[in-house]
Amino acid sequence: MTTRFRKFLGDSALSFPTWAYMLFFFALPVALVMWYSFGFKPDQFTTHSMEQLSLGRYREVVSPTFLSVFTATLRISIVGTLACLVIAVPFAYWLAVKVPPGRRGLLLALVLVPFWTNFLVRTLGWQIILSPDGFVSEALQGIGLLGSPLDILYSRAAVQIGVIYNYLPLMILPLFVAMDSAGVQLREASADLGAGKWRTFFQVTLPLATPGVVSGCLLVFIPLTGDYITASVLGGANGTMIGQLVANQFQNAQNWALGSAMAVVLMLFTLAVVVVTALLALVVKAIIKHVGRVELPTGQHAGPDAGTAADLPAGSGVRQAEAAVSGTTTGGPHA
């Protein structure tokens, strides 16, 4: 009995410090925020009061200002995520498939350089590039492409460029890992079986990279939705994001109750996106497995083979989910 007990404890005891830390410095404070969201701001000098609990702050959250900022934020983060995906898919494919293996390490290291440059400093670089009296503006005017100085800084377009740039490496890395670990053998097999280049890409490489696509999209979407640094550097007053509204309630308005309610809404929304994405990925996987099933024309012999071919994406998908998780780690919710 004691050995059994010890075995049980030895198994989980190692994780106790992690448990304790995450509960004490994450779960508890976040629970506190949820609690505050049911309170109110009694007077000018008090941040919150819990004497009367109500859903009043949530009603305040659903105001036209909040909703318009919310939709604007959502538009920027959806467009940003899709743009990152469109840029990163061919790029990751090129890096994983076309670049000779000897040079791959160096190029991958180069992709990581922006990642190791301070987030704000990179954004400042764009502020200089996009500024009306910057060198780009002058060059465009010089060759006659622009009649007046470049008018893009402090607009939504500038914010969009900035976020695409800032989160692009987080899309490239998991995609690269997924495409790289799919290996050259399957692509060669596909070519040997007579599939063209495009067919191989869409029926072999891309389906196998689905976990990478999913984790890349989440890695970009989640921090992007909460980010307000990029927007306030490049968008000025036109770049108000939802995170900024939440921060303002705490840093300027000193209304913790309302700020907490906004934060809870933001958090639940992000969580909902993650769940929906995961479900969507499962559906897509099922469809791929169903539609992409390879039926070999020859009689009985082909039976088991066809089965194996169809099962393959699912099987290696599991392995890649692991890779995708470590991909998740890579990016981390960056700055």
Partner: peptide, 24 residues
């Protein structure tokens, strides 16, 4: 449970961490 808790910290927007830490 532990994986879920850790994953939750990853999907929590940073600003929420910030406003939760300050009063704590």
């Amino acid at each position: 449970l532990l994986t879920a808790l850790l994953a939750l910290t990853l999907v929590t927007p940073e600003v929420v961490d910030g406003i939760a830490m300050l009063p704590w």
